[in-house]
Amino acid sequence: MTAPPAAGATADAAPAPRAGGRRPGLPPTVRYLGGRVLTALVSLLAVMVTSFFLFRVLPGDPVTALTQGRAVTVEQLEAMRRDFGLDQPLPQQFLDYCLGMLTLDFGTSYQYRVPVSDLILERLGPTLLLAGTGTLIAAVLGLVLGTRAGWRRGSVMDRVDTGVALTLWSVPSFWLGLLLIVLLASGAGLFPTSGMSTPGVTGPLNVALDVAHHMVLPVATMVAVVYAQYMMIMRSSLVDEAGADYLTTARAKGLRDALVLRRHAVPNALLPTVTLIFLNLGRVVSGVILIETVFAWPGLGSLFYSGLRVPDLPIVQALFVVFAGSVILMNLLADLVYPLLDPRVRT
């Protein structure tokens, strides 16, 4: 911040060049960014440690689960256990786990017998497609409806829009998903109930249309359950902005109400909203796991679910770190984007 010039005669003078008040050493921007990145790294480490212990306290023994219904000797069980490294003492297992994580070697899946990183890479695309499309639609819908509701707070439209959004939001996504399947897929046969593609479809255009057709229900479920949070965030930050004096000033200068909203209120209300949207992306992750499971979408969520049933420790540990890591990354992005949007933090 520039120090305001002293009162009296100097008040008319332009502010002094922004030199004073800065400590020697790193420029503030670098210090700010460095601090944020450091915080993110520390959180990621904490997540890695948590992931290891979290899934080991789950009930169920992977070896028993994988051999269920088959006649196996005690020796075979022992061999499997050795194979998975589960015969080692816990500290040794932890050490191996940490070394693996740090070298991005997530181990081999117990049930699929392939490297976890291969599985993740294979499943990443479908998840990004579903979560990305759903989030984008939900965010746009939420921002538009939230703006409308916040600008006319207390109106009938505000009440209806808010009521619908909160009702959908409070519905469990798997329930809504099943309902849509029953109504539109199984019953009417309008949409496929599961998977991402129909076998045998060829040609880029046909494949794209086929995937889009499969996406309709999962994306609709996700949008319905998620858009309320964007809407409520936008609505409340617009309500906060709505009493601001600069809106009155703009109106008094003759600016049309719609432009007062578009030029002044929305850009300022978006500022806190963008940050909160990034922070809320964590919910997207948990939502995607459920929705992929319901619609058998071949993504990370259903992989996680299949790993959780065993428990296939390498898969669930790695995915937990990936999911939590993406939330941390989003938070970091929010911190980094904010100064670009707000001149007050930019200094």
């Binding site: 601001a244 004096d245 600069y246 009155t248 000033t249 703009a250 850009p267 300022n268 001149p343």
Partner: peptide
């Protein structure tokens, strides 16, 4: 009254 409020900060 309050010039900080009556100017759009952005």
């Amino acid at each position: 009254q309050d010039p900080s409020g009556s100017l759009n900060p952005r």
